[in-house]
Design a protein around this nucleic acid. Structure first.
Lengths: 253, 253
DNA sequence: GGCAATCGAGTACAGCGTACCCAGTTAAAG
DNA sequence: CTTTAACTGGGTACGCTGTACTCGATTGCC
């Protein structure tokens, strides 16, 4: 269950904040806060208490200031989320690429997968169009380097990168939700299966969903063995890279 | 920007609702509503007025009943969302598969892509573990049929299907967000580019992000030509299926 | 010293999901 | 037929959200 953006914020203001295009005030009192501190506090709250606890009041409390004080620095919550995303992207390794394109893309995928696990709230944000902050741009630039020099068109480079990133995010989403499910629903995996057992049994006896039964049983057991999400990522990544390989070799040949 | 679910609902109750395991009351007045009508109204509201307008009060208004009346039929909003998802999945074509596995998976991907466009709110829901409703189960069963009979293990079948579905959802997410961006941000594409132009120009002159500039320019122009999202889906789907093909042929050979 | 700008923050409002309560309705039990 | 238990409809209220508005306090420039 999700809500959308307020949309109140002027993108020009977000950009000003992201790029620090704002000369310090000459008159009034010295600002006691900085945008950076607010963003850091917000990330802290989101990490420690979860996405649903991330409210303007909670961030203000964490900083020991009044709620409305935040609005002196940030136009609104939507913009704060944009800034958080840009800050998180700054954590990514941006050293020059090494190895083959496949090794590069593999590392890009794993880096994003890992980042989504470190900051699960990213998965709730990046659904919106990213505001072009410095780290967003640098990330894009760096990751494009993984598929540069292969003779691909710009469109192809972007499409391939988009595919890999979208896959990594999708797989991470599944993984994160799965690991959060127990505390979100307040029931363990076992309780969950017990809750579903009576109905599943009835249906399986009726043999209405034979394939789902066969596969679901095996997968269900594997899920309980904590096998699942990482496996899905590894498997999918290999397939995606294979598919890209076919394309690149065809284009070269 | 998103919020999470309340988690108040007992999954056992959701299942009762989904499978109609509830004998009609013997005493009291006849219920004026049905769960189906509530779900239909909720889908209607979500489709007509958007995800952010989907509130319990709004759904109740649409049905001409008091807000709290809904809670006689549905434990909470989270469960209502589960029911909506199951209902939407019921719209999918479930006729027997035809053609090669590749044609089948292609159709599965397109069907999901299309469904996500018809009911964009699905992308905001399915993040949570799906409650196993009849249509959820039937969808799983049917889609597994696309990769049945190829000698794949159950784990592989599930992994391949998961990959295709996760890709389709990811691509649809991008596409939907892009088409919704103008009304969400209240600015046209042109306004958006104009807002970003000064900063982008400054950065590009500094040549700090050479690749991003080169690729971004081309992609940006293509985006304005409304080329983009559908293209990314077609491109990615072909690559994903190619990758799966490599795997299937290796497994067979 | 006066003015203009800026900061911090309390108050208030509209909206949300929903717990709680009570009046009205119906069928079963006596 | 009366009583009773079960059930429905829904109003009120609580705690939460983001944030518009407004105020006094503070600071630097003229």
């Amino acid at each position: 269950m999700t809500t959308e953006y307020t949309g109140t914020g002027d993108p020009a203001k977000s950009l000003e904040l992201l790029w620090g295009t704002k000369n310090p005030p000459s008159r009034g009192p010295r600002p006691a806060l900085t945008v950076e501190r607010i963003v850091a506090a917000a990330i802290e709250v989101a990490g420690a208490e979860g996405w649903q606890a991330l409210s303007m009041r909670r961030v203000a409390d964490a900083l020991g200031v009044g709620t409305m004080t935040l609005y002196r620095y940030v136009p609104g919550k939507g913009e704060l989320l944009d800034l958080m995303m840009d800050a998180a992207f700054g954590e990514l390794d941006r050293r020059p690429h090494e190895g083959t394109w496949r090794e590069r893309l593999d590392r890009v995928a794993r880096a994003n997968w890992e980042l989504c696990h470190r900051h699960p709230w990213l998965l709730n944000i990046s659904m919106s169009r990213p505001v072009l902050g410095p780290n967003v741009l640098a990330k894009y630039d760096h990751e494009l380097g993984a598929v540069d020099g292969l003779g691909l068109s710009e469109m192809d480079m972007d499409a391939i990168l988009t595919l890999v990133l979208s896959f990594a995010a999708g797989a991470a989403r599944v993984s994160v939700e799965q690991s959060q499910a127990p505390q979100r629903t307040g029931m363990t995996d076992e309780q969950w299966w017990n809750a579903h057992a009576p109905i599943l049994e009835r249906l399986y006896k009726a043999d209405e969903y034979p394939l789902a039964q066969r596969v679901g049983t095996v997968v269900g057991e594997a899920m309980q063995a904590a096998y699942d999400a990482g496996h899905a990522f590894e498997f999918g990544l290999a397939r995606v890279l294979d598919g890209i390989e076919v394309y690149i070799e065809d284009a070269a040949g």
